[in-house]
């Protein structure tokens, strides 16, 4: 799987363990080391294993966040964390509900979502079209690769001032920032994924007499799908980053405005409401791509952690 992210060293890439386990050179205990495998569940379990199994991650990946929330709540109730410093999760929820009833949160959320949706649609659309052209045609590569590589080195925050100078403080610069954040990783990952499709399979396809259309739809696109989904994941993450940046620097509506407003009037709880909403958006985006991966990549013999 080829993965390119606009920022170096994002966790996804892993290197397969190349060094095989060293052969046992210890000759003092040769025949003793044995392993026995039986059907799962039929083995007699120790008290410890039973206890561990019962305690086993009841909420999946949400276990750790929930534990943190509970600890946070307790610390806040005990007064260890001051309300202006880090308000209790329940207080944040209450404030969120209150803001919603006051008719503040709903419209702000809608505005932020609309910005994200338009920006994403724009960025992903351009990223996919240019990525496919660049991946399939060498002239496309020459046309797009240089400029995207340059874009890739420019942080989102750095182009924000230019956007404001060019387009003022209306919706356009915000949407463009989000689109920019989504476009770059989509292009880079899609390009690399298309070029990374196994050449032996392409060659095999030619020998079956399949035409160019078949090659693209049945070999290149499905083969590039894993890389495309990695790109989608980065695109969603960076578009949310772009949303936060655009809304925090200048906005008179939206979640970012809610946060800046809370900061101005020392309403820490309101700031946290905004942060939590951003976090939930990010989480939902990630879960969406994971779902897509499960559906679209079921052909892949992949590692499943036990």
């Amino acid at each position: 799987m080829t993965e390119i992210s606009p920022h170096p060293a994002v966790g996804e890439a892993y290197s397969p363990a190349t060094d095989a386990p060293a052969p046992a050179t210890d000759t003092s205990a040769p025949a003793q080391a044995r392993e026995v495998f039986v059907a799962a569940g039929s083995r007699r379990t120790s008290a410890f294993t039973r206890w561990r199994r019962r305690l086993r991650w009841p909420l999946g990946i949400y276990t750790t966040p929930v534990v943190i929330l509970i600890v946070w709540e307790i610390l806040a109730e005990l007064g260890v964390l001051g309300p202006t410093y880090a308000p209790a999760p329940t207080a944040i929820a209450r404030t969120a509900a209150q803001l919603w009833r006051q008719g503040v949160l709903g419209p702000d959320l809608a505005i932020s979502l609309r910005r994200a949706a338009i920006g994403l649609a724009l960025g992903l659309g351009i990223g996919i079209v240019t990525g496919v052209i660049g991946g399939l045609l060498s002239s496309g590569e020459n046309l797009f690769n240089g400029i995207v590589q340059i874009f890739n080195t420019i942080p989102i925050l750095a182009i924000l001032p230019v956007m404001i100078v060019w387009f003022g403080i209306n919706e356009l610069p915000k949407v463009l920032i989000i689109a920019f954040g989504a476009f770059v990783p989509m292009y880079l990952n899609l390009f690399a994924a298309i070029r990374g499709v196994d050449q032996r399979l392409v060659e095999m396809t030619h020998t079956t007499g399949a035409g160019r259309w078949r090659l693209v739809t049945r070999v290149i696109f499905p083969g590039a799908m894993p890389g495309f989904l990695v790109g989608l994941r980065f695109s969603l993450a960076y578009s949310i980053l772009g949303l936060v940046a655009a809304e925090t620097v200048n906005a008179n509506s939206g979640i970012g405005f809610l946060i800046t407003n809370g900061q101005t009037y020392l309403q820490t709880t309101q700031v946290f409401v905004g942060l939590v909403i951003y976090a939930i958006l990010g989480l939902l985006a990630d879960q969406f791509v994971r779902l897509l991966q499960r559906v679209l990549l079921q052909w892949r013999p992949s590692y499943e952690a036990s």
Partner: peptide, 17 residues
């Protein structure tokens, strides 16, 4: 090697051309 397309089921691998 078999050079099957891993992302297509057996039938679709045969209908490729």
């Amino acid at each position: 090697g078999d050079r099957l397309l891993p992302w297509q089921r057996a039938l679709r691998n045969v209908t490729l051309g």
